[in-house]
Design a protein around this nucleic acid. Structure first.
Lengths: 207, 207
DNA sequence: AAGGAAATACCGACTAGCCGGTATTTTTAT
DNA sequence: ATAAAAATACCGGCTAGTCGGTATTTCCTT
């Protein structure tokens, strides 16, 4: 397959690097790169790429808005959103505007190439790390890695939502003392001492 | 020149792309890539790179803390901070810990190569786009928007580093009661009630 | 059925943070 | 020089969380 790709990210270094990486791949041509949202569509009109790799944060115009306008115009160019955000809101919005893919910057080169191939084949590719099922899998391996129980993980999630032990106790119909014991055990297992560390841990491991 | 480079960024895609881009350059070898802060120094010990390209935001340990520890240990590996932040505070901190370079992700491939060459020649390279007026202005407008004082912002930063009021008091040679008063005033101004909210605020507004 | 793990809940004591306030000193702006 | 803002520090009282422990019940695995 021969695939023409346009890269759009506000970080020129990222653009340059992705271009170098993709151009080493048989069958992929990088036709251009832009770093401002409002440069994307004019460049697409000019170079007619098969796929546009599109960051969300860009000066000039937001990547999702660009993608929406592109799709509304009936363009043949497919769009893969490349984002650092795992945030469900961005994923949901990407699906609403019918973006052809959504990849996290945590993804590997291999995953990017897989996304490009699937999208070229007319399929969509949403990063497997997004969504509930990945959370289930993560939860299983996560439980094993840190020896956390299901209840502990549930409580970690509620702490992450900025709930106090009392609020968590009320929500789960348990004693506040139970919650505090769980938190103590969690802190022991994770080697941490306070709420902020726990929340950061939860964010790092995407609980 | 033959230059061995280690890449450290939490986004694997960025790592993979930078690796591909650098390996196409005569005289540069990528000896490894890591995506967690606490993996950096063990990998440096193992691969002995000439230069480490180091992001600031990484799980496990902050890139600047890693760089500081590296410099303090007398390592021969030079450090170029690669950051999306133009923020003067990061630049200042990079200089304080004697990082060999600081490059924005807005920089181009050519600029990265120039930085690598200068640093290999024993010079430092701080991205020319960095400048006082932008960051000073950003901080000024931030102060105005939330009506925060300089001391309050300083304390917010230390809270973000997970320091207790007592630890902050010791560090600033003030009474813990002073710190608690500042925190009270901060919470009042921002309309928040606890440490987690404060830290999230600080992260959202990039303090 | 039995044993082990998870979950629940409590005790006492401590640190940390929050919340209402007041007051004085220092620094900055006019 | 003066006024205002910022910074500093304290009082009393509260909630929240942490830390050492123990004990019982429920659930799951063997």
């Amino acid at each position: 397959m021969n695939c023409r790709v346009l890269i759009a990210d506000d970080h020129v270094l990222f653009n340059d690097a992705i271009k170098a990486m993709l151009e080493a791949v048989e069958g992929i041509t990088v036709v251009g790169q832009v770093s401002r949202g409002n440069e994307v569509i004019p460049m697409i009109d000019k170079t007619k790429p098969d796929i546009c790799l599109l960051d969300i944060n860009m000066p000039g115009q937001n990547g999702l808005m660009v993608a929406e306008r592109l799709k509304e115009s009936g363009s043949a160019t497919r769009v893969i959103i490349i984002s650092m955000y795992q945030d469900k809101r961005f994923v949901t919005e990407s699906k609403r505007i019918k973006a052809d893919g959504y990849l996290l910057k945590d993804a590997s080169k291999a995953e990017l190439l897989a996304a490009i191939e699937m999208v070229m084949n007319g399929e969509t590719f949403y990063d497997p790390k997004l969504g509930k099922d990945i959370n289930q899998h993560a939860e299983d391996s996560f439980i094993k890695k840190f020896n956390l129980t299901k209840r502990e993980i549930e409580i970690i999630r509620l702490v992450k939502e900025n709930m106090t032990a009392r609020e968590i106790a009320d929500k789960l119909c348990l004693s506040v003392l139970t919650i505090e014991t769980h938190r103590r055990n969690i802190n022991l297992k994770l080697g941490i001492k306070n709420t902020l560390s726990l929340v950061r841990f939860a964010e790092t491991y995407n609980i």
